[in-house]
Amino acid sequence: MREELLQLLSAENPEIDFTASEELVDDGILDSLTIVSVIGTLSMEYGIEIPYEEIIPENFNSIDAMAAMVQRLQA
């Protein structure tokens, strides 16, 4: 799941290195525009609905955190 997600997001946002940090949001690597793009990609690719309360920095700070969120929402 992690590798698949990394490939998918890197293809969508080639200018961003998603492995550069474990705190992508807190370090300012992901801004609100990119987060919106990531959410759009995740919703479309995995057929999930990401509720607004899930949109917190902790869920987008790393590829692992995003993968965990997708798996949780798919359950």
């Binding site: 609100s32 987060i35 919106v36 959410i39 759009g40 919703s43 479309m44 609905e49 990401i50 607004y52 949109i55």
Partner: peptide, 16 residues
């Protein structure tokens, strides 16, 4: 405003 609109169901459907 921005985030709730950007991740809203209707917009996600539209961009899909």
């Amino acid at each position: 405003v921005y985030m709730p609109v950007a991740v809203s169901k209707w917009l996600i459907k539209l961009i899909t």
